[in-house]
Amino acid sequence: MDRSEHDLAEAMRAASRGDAAAYTRLLRDVAEWLRPIIRRELVRSGRSGADAEDIVQDTLLALHLKRHTWDEARPIGPWIRAIARHKLIDTLRLPRGRGNDVSIDEFGDVLVAHEPARPALERDVERRLDALPPGQRQVIQAIAIDGLSIGEAAAKFEMTAVAVRVALHRALKSLNSTAGVT
């Protein structure tokens, strides 16, 4: 095992003992380690490297949820790479063009155009927001409805600004796909 994997393993062991700073460091270091690997694999597979951050975030979430499955007597690198590989494969299985990037400014025009049908629109917005995972829903609520900044939302939910941006991006992407925007 190389030095960086040794450091990751030590950080994971410390995190398992309750060291929050070690856990934060572990997640940051894993993300930095995986980004170029995942981006390279996406490009090698004929995909844009733009999905790399989503895959990294999905991998970090899986690491968090499955951290109890890592055997401390075994190297951590293969365990992390296996989780990342599965997240990458999940993404590659999705059809190309599965999402559309739509500027939030475009939604404003749609909302103004439908102003007379506001009660129906409000019900539709509520229904779509309710379909989001709780974390994404709370970020959308805080930023788009309550008017909080990214920093304010991060402080409110005890998240990093990057995590808030990722949740906001994913929520907008989900809302976009359920709206049938092409």
Results as ranks from 00 to 15, higher is better:
M159S: 08
E41D: 14
R13I: 14
T178R: 09
R127H: 13
R96Q: 13
T59C: 12
R35L: 14
I150A: 04
V139Q: 07
Y23T: 00
P133L: 13
L92H: 01
H114R: 14
R28Y: 05
E5L: 06
I38A: 01
A144T: 03
A82V: 04
L42D: 08
L8V: 04
Y23Q: 11
V166K: 00
L168C: 00
P75H: 06
E106F: 01
V56S: 06
A20N: 07
L88M: 07
S4D: 12
V43L: 10
A117T: 05
H114S: 10
W70I: 09
V181S: 06
E152L: 02
L175S: 06
S103M: 05
R93F: 04
L121F: 09
A144K: 07
V30F: 08
E152V: 02
R128H: 12
R98M: 09
G99I: 11
A161C: 06
R28I: 01
A163G: 07
D51W: 04
R25Y: 12
V56K: 04
Q141N: 09
E158R: 14
E122Y: 06
E5M: 03
S48F: 00
D90H: 01
G108F: 12
L92G: 05
V102Y: 02
P134L: 11
D130N: 12
V139W: 02
E10R: 14
D146Y: 06
R47F: 06
D146Q: 13
A21I: 03
V162Q: 12
Q57M: 12
E122K: 09
Q136A: 11
R85S: 11
A155P: 00
R74V: 07
L92K: 03
R81A: 14
L61V: 10
D2G: 15
D130H: 10
W70L: 09
P78K: 02
K87I: 01
I145T: 09
G49T: 04
H114C: 11
L168G: 03
H114Y: 06
P78S: 10
L111A: 11
V125T: 09
S149E: 02
N100W: 12
L172G: 15
H68D: 14
R28D: 10
A73Q: 15
T178C: 02
R81G: 02
I104M: 10
R96F: 05
G99D: 11
L175K: 01
I145A: 08
E126F: 01
A14L: 15
A62I: 00
V56T: 06
R127Q: 13
I80M: 03
M12N: 00
M12W: 13
G18E: 08
K66L: 06
L26M: 09
R25Q: 09
V43A: 00
L132H: 06
L148I: 00
L42K: 01
W33R: 15
A84P: 00
T160P: 08
K156R: 15
A155K: 13
V30E: 04
L8R: 15
A62W: 02
W79K: 02
P36T: 04
R137G: 07
H169A: 15
I38Y: 01
V102Q: 03
T91S: 11
D124Q: 14
A82I: 00
R35S: 08
G180S: 08
N176I: 12
R165K: 14
E115M: 12
I145Y: 10
A84F: 08
R47L: 07
R93L: 13
E72P: 07
H6Q: 15
P75D: 13
E5C: 02
H114G: 05
D7I: 12
